[in-house]
């Protein structure tokens, strides 16, 4: 589904991504582990076309997307739910969600049906649909962000730190929802600092440090790996 081949990304003289290669197969839920500043968010920004690569290539479903615009990448089925949510804070929840389906704007009936599915997934959003997105709690805003991404009908969903700043109970709900989204057929690439919780729902994972992949393995391999346990799980 997604292949990164020696992807490089520089911010001025700082190298944020230093030759990252990885792949995500159809239907998988893959987790990216790494400390703050390891390059997870930079990698997601590069994949979704918001940052220009300094080298390497990215393929989606076999087709080249290196250098493509974010709009082209979204229309090809890759949707990025970013860290910090990037919602339209002064717009209603319903409008945020509808704009999530912008690339499918010709299919009004399909969008309405999808909106109902999102409301079924997050019933609180149905209640709050007329409220401004910026007025919601952190957990509810995260639901809007995930819902908005799902309105784009992604084949591959990139989720960047969806549990950041949320209460433990809400983190559990969000991760359960991500698992359910994956189970319904959407491939998911998840960046998470909450390594233990993320590995509970993942099929596989990569560990990145200083913009490089330093480790990869199945859920069990990573859970049993001493380095991962010491650095990211704390045990």
């Amino acid at each position: 589904m997604l292949q990164l081949d020696r992807v490089m990304l520089n911010y001025g003289s700082f190298r944020a991504l230093d030759g990252i290669s990885l792949n995500v197969r159809d239907g998988e839920l893959v987790v990216m582990l790494g400390a703050n500043g390891a390059g997870k968010s930079s990698m997601f920004l590069a994949i979704s076309g918001l940052r220009k690569l300094s080298g390497g290539s990215i393929k989606l479903a076999g087709g080249e997307i290196t250098g493509a615009s974010p709009a082209t990448i979204v229309s090809r089925g890759l949707v990025h739910c970013p860290e910090g949510r990037k919602l339209f804070a002064h717009m209603s929840v319903a409008k945020n969600l509808m704009l999530g389906g912008y690339v499918h704007r010709g299919d009004k009936a399909g969008l309405k049906e999808r909106l109902e599915q999102i409301y079924d997934m997050f019933p609180i959003l149905r209640e709050k649909r007329d409220n401004n997105a910026g007025s919601l709690s952190g957990g509810q805003q995260q639901m809007v962000a995930i819902g908005r991404a799902l309105m784009g009908r992604p084949k591959l969903l990139l989720l960047d730190e969806p549990s950041l700043g949320l209460a433990p109970l809400v983190v559990r709900q969000v991760l359960d929802t991500i698992k359910a989204i994956n189970a319904s057929g959407t491939t998911v690439l998840l960046a998470e600092q909450n390594a233990y919780a993320a590995l509970q729902i993942a099929d596989r994972g990569y560990v990145i440090e200083s913009g490089r992949v330093v480790l990869e393995g199945s859920r069990q391999e990573l859970l049993n790996n001493d380095t991962v346990r010491r650095a990211y799980i704390g045990g």
Binding site: L50, P70, A71, G100, G101, Y102, R148, G152
Partner: peptide, 8 residues
């Protein structure tokens, strides 16, 4: 950035 991410 949020707008670009939904394909605008």
């Amino acid at each position: 950035e949020g707008a670009a991410l939904v394909g605008i």
